[in-house]
């Protein structure tokens, strides 16, 4: 191979090096690049330059400040303002979501609202699965209802909680049982659940005990 054709072949391979470095080449191209690298030490050196650039591009991006909760709050407000979609699933949950929105906006103190916003993204996935606990028995074996059925019967105090995404359902159930709590409503918008405690229970103390299990509970506070 003369110098010109060698440069041309090297140029074609070199164009692929950035994607080779990120592992985003198709198998055939990857094999072509690897064969060329094995035969051309200069390509090895140029691949190192690519990797150096990539490392600095990653560092530059990672150094950017994280998003605040403002983008999330703004998104949720915009979704709230959207006209109700004609979707079966949405229709099924509309009562719950609207009631929770009114509840949180009307009753929650500022501190609670900010705390809830901070954990809301973390707990969202959890909320898809914990709904199955509703109706399995409340505090002291009392009944539970879904939010769509309205406020849970009973005079015990209530808590707002959010569970850690990695917590298992059986762990959650056991923790609630040990603390005389049952899920009264939820999942709320943002993945929050409302717990009902036995009558006369100290809501703050139970909230503290739940919060002491950060692997299972990421947020717990007496409901206002």
């Amino acid at each position: 191979m003369n110098d010109t054709s060698m440069d041309k072949g090297r140029g074609e391979i070199e164009d692929l090096l950035p994607w080779y470095a990120t592992g985003r080449l198709a198998a055939a191209d990857r094999a072509r690049v690897e064969a060329a690298i094995d035969a051309d030490p200069e390509l090895v050196r140029r691949l190192e330059i690519v990797r150096e650039e990539r490392a600095e591009a990653i560092a530059a991006n990672e150094a950017l400040s994280p998003t605040s909760s403002r983008a999330f709050d703004r998104l949720m407000a915009a979704i709230d303002a959207e006209p109700a979609p004609a979707r079966p699933f949405a229709a099924m949950k509309a009562g719950l979501l609207e009631r929770f929105g009114d509840f949180l906006a009307g009753l929650a103190p500022r501190r609670l609202a900010y705390a809830a916003a901070a954990v809301v993204a973390v707990v969202a996935l959890q909320s898809l699965a914990i709904g199955g606990l509703i109706g399995r028995g409340g505090p002291a074996g009392g009944p539970m209802t879904t939010a769509s059925q309205g406020e849970t019967a009973g005079a015990g105090p209530t808590l707002l909680v959010a569970f850690a995404p990695e917590a298992r359902i059986d762990e959650i159930a056991a923790l609630l049982k040990a603390n005389g709590a049952g899920i009264a409503e939820g999942p709320k918008a943002g993945g929050m659940f409302r717990l009902r405690l036995v009558e006369g229970a100290d809501a703050a103390a139970v909230a503290a005990k739940l919060a002491a299990e950060p692997r299972i509970v990421v947020f717990a506070q007496p409901a206002p």
Partner: peptide, 15 residues
């Protein structure tokens, strides 16, 4: 289908 928690998960995953 209008599932808001799913929206929150996607947001937290990619924001």
């Amino acid at each position: 289908a209008g599932d808001r928690p799913a929206m929150q998960v996607l947001f937290s995953r990619h924001r």
